[in-house]
Each structure stands twice: as structure tokens, then as C-alpha cells.
Simulated assay, not measured.
Amino acid sequence: MATRSRRPDRRQEPLSRERIVEAAVELLDSVGESGLTFRALADRLATGPGAIYWHIAGKAELLTAATDAVVAAAVRPAEPGGAPGDGVRTVALGLFDAVEEHPWLAAQLAAQLSRSPWGTVAPRIFESIGREVRALGVPEAGWFTATSALMHYILGSAGQNAANTASAAAPGAGMERAEFLDAVSTAWEGLDPDAYPFTRAVAEQVRGHDDREQFLDGIALVLAGIVALHPPVAQPAVTVVR
């Protein structure tokens, strides 16, 4: 006797925007933006596409919400009582690791920051970094420039690192990270010494370097420049009333 294939059991908890966004992040991580469809999302959530549309108007809104959710988890503040600059490093590494963990994130961040900087993503990142810049004692006149410099360095470096990782892991590349860096270093060493003397001189440093350490060294350089150009102002004393 013929039997009908059973549909996946619907989950008992009510569908919510949070569940939809969580499932969208999982789909983006596994199949990328091209695989994120409302049909695939409905299958994952064991519901109908119409139920998802009740919470999310379309794919653009879904991508924004997924990006914002990942960023919100990444930019948690540092523990209080740390050394000056620890807060900046904590936010920076959170974003760096998030871009590394979610291959789709770098492209979405670039799109969000260029197309809709008035949305939720850009202000969330800027606020997280800006609070740490303010905590350094940077005068208010330097807040925007200092925060912008850090934001561009963090996202640019994280995006380039993610692109390098994806390039090395692409089908047909057949390279581990060490092999990829060795190939770059070897190519630079073979450049014309008259046209590229500096690049040839640092080619060996490319081979085997640690991306996170290099990233944090860059943060240190930017922070040193910020403090040199915008010396911290003394914080007002707190009067304790007894």
C-alpha cells in the first residue's frame, strides 16, 4: 500500500522574528546568500513562507536583521577595570572573529554601511567603538575622526582577511593557509628589485605571519596615533557626598 511522505513536524514554540533571524544566519553560514530563500527558510523552520512574511517583509530586511544580530553578538563590551584600550581591542576582535566565522558577513557589512548607514548596523558598530574611544579620554572634538579611523581599519582588515581565507579555500585552489602565504611571499620575492624594492624587502614577513597578531598590532598603531593627536583630557573628579 502506498504511503505518503510525512512533512517535518512543526516546532511547538511560536514562530518569532528572533527564531527566523537565527535560522537565516544558519542558512547563510551553510549555503551563502544565494541559498537564503524564504522557501529554504520555511523548510528549516517547518512552517509556511506566509508565516515568515508576517514577521519579515522580504529578503533585504532579512539580510539586514541577520547582519545586525551577528554584529550585536560580536561587539559586547570588555570587562570593567582593564587597561586603556582594552575595550577597543575587545570590540575589534569580536568583529574580526565574526567576519572570519561568517563568510557572508563582510559583503553584507560593506553593503549596509554604503547603502543604508542610517539603518541599525552602522550605528551599532560606530556606537560600540565610539564609547571605547570616549573612555580613552579623547577630547570630544576628536571622537568622530578617531572612531571613523578605527571602524575603517577594523572592517577593512577583517574583510581582507576573510577574502584571503575564502580565496585559499576556493574550489580548485587546493591550498592551506600556509601554502597560500608562501605562494604570496615567493611571488613578491620574485618582483623586479628596481620597481618593488620595499615589497621584496618585506616578502619574508608575509610567510607564516599570524593574522590576529598582525590585526592587533594595527589596532595598537591606530590607538597610538589617536592618543598622540588627541591627548586624553582629565576626567572630572567625583565628589562623594557623605
Score class of each variant (00 low, 15 high):
residue 86 D to W: 00
residue 94 G to D: 06
residue 17 R to M: 11
residue 170 A to E: 10
residue 87 G to I: 07
residue 16 S to K: 11
residue 69 A to W: 02
residue 202 V to G: 06
residue 132 E to M: 05
residue 132 E to D: 13
residue 229 L to V: 09
residue 34 S to L: 01
residue 227 V to I: 14
residue 1 M to V: 12
residue 106 A to T: 08
residue 105 L to I: 03
residue 84 P to I: 09
residue 47 T to L: 08
residue 141 A to Y: 11
residue 26 E to R: 13
residue 169 A to P: 01
residue 125 I to Q: 08
residue 153 Y to V: 04
residue 134 R to S: 13
residue 116 S to L: 03
residue 169 A to W: 00
residue 142 G to F: 00
residue 31 V to Y: 00
residue 224 A to I: 11
residue 202 V to W: 11
residue 193 P to C: 10
residue 191 L to G: 05
residue 225 G to T: 06
residue 154 I to T: 04
residue 131 R to P: 03
residue 38 F to V: 03
residue 136 L to K: 00
residue 62 L to G: 01
residue 152 H to I: 13
residue 80 P to T: 10
residue 138 V to H: 09
residue 38 F to A: 02
residue 77 P to N: 07
residue 112 Q to T: 07
residue 227 V to D: 07
residue 141 A to D: 15
residue 13 E to I: 04
residue 7 R to F: 02
residue 63 L to F: 06
residue 130 G to C: 04
residue 203 A to M: 10
residue 95 L to F: 07
residue 106 A to L: 10
residue 233 V to I: 15
residue 39 R to C: 01
residue 143 W to I: 10
residue 116 S to D: 13
residue 195 A to C: 04
residue 150 L to M: 10
residue 87 G to N: 07
residue 176 E to G: 13
residue 218 G to A: 03
residue 145 T to S: 15
residue 218 G to E: 02
residue 228 A to G: 09
residue 107 A to L: 13
residue 94 G to L: 08
residue 134 R to E: 15
residue 195 A to Q: 06
residue 129 I to Y: 02
residue 44 R to L: 11
residue 32 G to H: 01
residue 151 M to W: 05
residue 72 A to H: 14
residue 109 L to D: 10
residue 210 D to P: 05
residue 147 T to H: 05
residue 179 E to T: 06
residue 205 Q to R: 13
residue 126 F to C: 11
residue 125 I to V: 15
residue 221 L to F: 13
residue 13 E to R: 15
residue 63 L to T: 06
residue 174 G to C: 03
residue 65 A to T: 06
residue 219 I to T: 03
residue 103 P to I: 02
residue 172 G to F: 06
residue 203 A to Y: 08
residue 168 A to L: 12
residue 157 S to V: 00
residue 197 P to Q: 07
residue 149 A to T: 07
residue 38 F to T: 02
residue 177 R to N: 02
residue 160 Q to P: 00
residue 161 N to Q: 03
residue 28 L to A: 03
residue 187 A to L: 14
residue 169 A to Y: 01
residue 171 P to F: 04
residue 38 F to C: 01
residue 92 A to Q: 00
residue 117 P to I: 10
residue 61 E to Y: 02
residue 198 F to W: 10
residue 224 A to W: 12
residue 44 R to D: 11
residue 221 L to M: 14
residue 71 V to A: 12
residue 102 H to C: 10
residue 48 G to L: 12
residue 157 S to N: 01
residue 96 F to D: 00
residue 58 G to H: 09
residue 15 L to P: 00
residue 170 A to P: 06
residue 182 D to G: 12
residue 23 A to G: 11
residue 64 T to Q: 13
residue 4 R to H: 11
residue 141 A to G: 13
residue 110 A to R: 15
residue 208 G to T: 07
residue 242 R to I: 05
